[in-house]
């Protein structure tokens, strides 16, 4: 008998093999979710950011003391006013969350906007339009604080993103891979303690992360002129607390996974949404306000905002410490749950 299959037998084999793959696929709920559910969720999240109807106009900060007087004369709904304290106003201006600041002055309305920027021009035009015909004059001044260039915004975020990816893929996925290749159980059967096995994975990553982060930040400084206005040690402390947070989450993510596709799925589920919503490439305040209470406490948001506040705004220890503690809490909580659930085989 010939070793080659006849056409009919070959077609049947191909059919059964294809069917077997399909059955395997549909009998694994996790895989089905990552294939169908996750892309839908991701599309939804992106849609929230870019497709929500945004009112045309401009947003300006105003002090509590001036808000009533300004509201009396600036009645155009396209000029939105955000009442903030002095400190919060400065932060909003530096982060580029608002186009400028509006106040009452002895000669009328004082508008602080960057007239070299598109947002500033738009704000000036809208304010002047709403005051046209009125007795008020608009005096335009340069803002006392404004957002730096996009690199100043982007690089702290990219650094945070690198720390997240380094820890989640390096530690989380690294442990999953060891388990899937049955190496974890091989090591676990040796006299080496299980804590040491995990620690060796974490330590290896802690050698790589400073190299990765230093290279990225150095690139930003040299090529884009990124500045570090705050204390360098505080900046390193913030980055280290981020590494602790994501190491713990990495251990938790790796604690139970025993399937190759689930490993990739869980890593993508953790990293992609945070990459989108945590303000790495654009401010997370673009998302609807009902999402803010969740987004602002995500570890990547906390880390990116913290690094940005130290590097761009020169924030000090009093501002940084609570956020460092939040990141450490993320790491310790996730890590301890992960260790409790951890499977060695």
């Amino acid at each position: 008998m010939s070793g080659r299959l006849s056409g009919k037998a070959r077609a049947r084999a191909l059919y059964l093999f294809t069917k077997a793959h399909l059955l395997e696929f549909f009998r694994e709920p996790g895989v089905v979710f990552w294939a169908f559910g996750f892309p839908l969720l991701l599309s939804w999240a992106l849609g929230l950011a870019f497709l929500s109807p945004k009112p045309l106009g401009t947003e300006l900060v105003v002090s509590q003391a001036d808000s009533a007087a300004v509201r009396q004369v600036v009645t155009d709904p396209s000029v939105r006013l955000r009442v903030l304290s002095e400190e919060a106003a400065m932060r909003a201006l530096r982060r580029g969350e608002v186009a400028g600041r509006i106040a009452t002055g002895p000669d009328g309305i004082r508008l602080e906007v960057d007239t070299a920027s598109q947002d500033g021009v738009m704000a000036r035009l809208l304010v002047e339009r709403t005051l046209a015909g009125a007795a008020n004059r608009v005096k335009v001044e340069a803002p006392v604080a404004s957002a730096g260039n996009y690199a100043d915004f982007l690089f702290p975020g990219m650094l945070a993103l690198g720390l997240m990816n380094g820890c989640l893929w390096g530690i989380g996925f690294g442990l999953m891979d060891l388990r899937l290749r049955k190496l974890l159980r091989l090591f676990a059967a040796t006299p080496l303690s299980r804590v040491d096995i995990l620690l060796s994975v974490v330590l290896a990553r802690m050698v790589i992360l400073p190299l990765e982060s230093g290279l990225l930040w150095g690139f930003g400084m040299v090529v884009f002129g990124v500045h570090l206005h705050g204390n360098v040690f505080l900046f390193v402390l913030a980055a280290a607390s981020g590494a602790v947070a994501f190491s713990g989450i990495g251990v938790l993510a790796a604690s139970r996974v025993g399937h190759n596709q689930a490993a990739y799925g869980i890593m993508n589920a953790l990293t992609i949404p945070m990459t989108i919503v945590s303000g790495i490439f654009f401010s997370w305040t673009r998302f609807p306000s009902w999402l803010h209470p969740v987004v602002e406490w995500l570890p990547l948001t906390v880390l990116a905002d913290l690094l940005r506040s130290i590097s761009s705004e020169g924030a000090g220890l009093a501002h940084a410490l609570p956020r460092v503690l939040v990141l450490l809490a993320w790491g310790l909580l996730a890590g301890s749950v992960g260790l409790r659930l951890f499977r060695w085989r």
Binding site: K182, L183, A189, T190, P191, L192
Partner: peptide, 30 residues
């Protein structure tokens, strides 16, 4: 664990380590 040696079914050894490096690693565990 110090008394027991185990050889697991289908266990993959770290593929990107040399033979002597793997042995050195496992010897170091003991």
């Amino acid at each position: 664990r110090g008394k027991l040696g185990t050889c697991l079914q289908d266990a993959k050894l770290p593929e990107r380590l040399r033979v002597e490096e793997i042995l050195e690693l496992f010897c170091s565990f003991h």
